[in-house]
Amino acid sequence: MTEDELARRVTLGERAAVAEALNLTEDRRPEGRARAIALLRALRAGDEGARAHRVGITGPPGVGKSTLVAALTRELRRVSRTVGVVAVDPSSIRSGGALLGDRARISPDPNDQGVFVRSLATAGELGGLARSAPLALTVLAAAYDVAILETVGVGQTETDVRHVTDTVVFVVQPGSGDALQFLKAGIMEVPDVLVVNKADQAELAARASGDLAAALATLRSAGALPYDVPIVLTSARDGTGIDALVAALGAHRAELAGPRLLARRREGAIAWGLRAFVRRHGEVGVETRGGEQNVREAIASRLDEGAVIPQIVDEV
């Protein structure tokens, strides 16, 4: 099958095609990479995925991200939106092996053509994002209404997720001050939506959301908050608050519509390109190319010409 044909089938949401396309995005062999680039170009040319909503779900380990993604998926299907999920789990540094268990929380109806779930291992990447995760998300965004990226981590991961999604959801659980600390210390960029999950532990959840609101207020008065970040209380376990989360996601997407969305995506693509460039060529590579600003500009102009990131990283 040609890459154009594959791209066409992906956009039709054919599950076998989506699976094959995702395999390509992970392929490290030169011929595989070339095909992946051709595929991404074809998807980009069709401008597919522009309408999709790309959502990043991130946060510390064990706060219930996977359970929340499962609940969110069910709710989105209930309102007839199709959903693609990439769930990233860490690999063991030593063996390279990984246990990918997140499907278990979703257990989608195998006959439902409107849901697709792929697990990825970080494969030795630092931070919580697998190298191919952004590409996988691009494929899913071409095939489904909502493309969700779930990944563990705070700090750099959260920033990486921002580069490749339209809306970043940061999930915390009651009784842990982590998020608050990160926000205050400026380690973490302010997410687009804050979720306090496990709100079935009502008292603790109320306190956690109060603390978060206070932290946000401080940031706002310091002028460090570009918009009002909603705080949503959910219980992924009991399925409560999920409709409110869907609404918050919709509101953020609506707010971004038009030029702001395009600008955010372009900025994100450039930033992601820079990360990928550094990963490939090192700081030395950046220096030989005349410094970070020059690399950024080079990436931006190639993007505008219709190139895709893996290709740019190879070429620049």
Partner: peptide
């Protein structure tokens, strides 16, 4: 030994397993 392993626990239907194998590649 270095495999990426997908394990979904007990009680999965044959159709679900086939779907997982396909989607997970």
């Amino acid at each position: 030994v270095g495999f990426e392993v997908v394990y979904e626990g007990i009680r999965v239907t044959p159709a679900q397993l086939v779907a997982s194998a396909a989607q997970e590649g």
